[in-house]
Amino acid sequence: MTATLLQLQSSAIQLRDAIEYPAGVLNKILFKDNNCQYSLFCLAAGTEISEHTSSRNATVNVLEGKGILTLEGKDIVLEPGMFVFMPAKAIHALKAEENLAFILTLSEVN
Rank of each mutant, 00 (worst) to 15 (best):
I91E: 12
L104F: 05
V77C: 04
P22C: 04
A3E: 11
G67D: 08
L8M: 15
D17P: 05
L26H: 09
D17A: 09
L100C: 12
E97D: 15
Q14V: 09
T59R: 04
A96V: 11
I103G: 00
A101S: 11
T105N: 02
F102N: 07
I103K: 00
E97K: 09
T47V: 07
N57F: 05
E20N: 05
A88D: 11
E72L: 01
R56M: 11
E72T: 05
I49M: 15
T2C: 06
G24R: 08
L8I: 14
H92K: 01
E98N: 13
A96D: 12
T2S: 14
H92N: 02
L104C: 08
Q7S: 15
L5C: 05
R56Q: 11
E51M: 03
G24H: 03
L100D: 02
E20M: 07
S107L: 04
I49T: 09
T70Y: 01
A45S: 15
L94S: 05
G65V: 07
A45N: 10
V62Y: 12
E20V: 02
D33C: 07
E48D: 13
L104V: 12
A88Q: 08
V60R: 07
P80R: 14
H52A: 02
E79N: 11
F41K: 10
L5H: 04
D75G: 01
I103S: 00
N110I: 13
F31W: 06
A58P: 03
L40R: 06
C42M: 09
C42D: 06
A45V: 04
G73T: 02
L15A: 00
K74Y: 04
N99S: 10
E51K: 12
S54V: 01
S55V: 15
E97P: 06
I13H: 01
L15C: 05
G67W: 13
F31V: 02
M1L: 06
T2K: 14
N57T: 07
I29P: 01
Y21K: 05
H92S: 00
F85D: 08
E51H: 07
D17W: 03
F31H: 14
N99A: 03
F102S: 06
N34E: 15
A88W: 09
N99G: 02
I19M: 06
L43I: 12
G24T: 03
R16T: 10
V77D: 09
L6D: 04
L94N: 02
L100H: 14
N61M: 10
E48H: 14
N34M: 13
L100A: 12
V62T: 08
I13E: 00
N35W: 14
A101W: 13
I91G: 10
N61Y: 14
P22S: 02
A45I: 08
L63I: 14
A93H: 00
I13P: 03
L40T: 05
I68V: 05
T70E: 04
V84K: 08
V25E: 15
G81S: 03
K89Q: 13
Y21P: 05
F83C: 10
D75W: 01
T70K: 05
I49G: 06
E72H: 00
Q9S: 15
C42G: 06
I103N: 00
K74I: 03
L8D: 15
E20L: 08
A23S: 09
F83V: 06
E48M: 10
D75C: 02
T105F: 00
I91T: 14
N57W: 07
T53M: 14
Q9A: 10
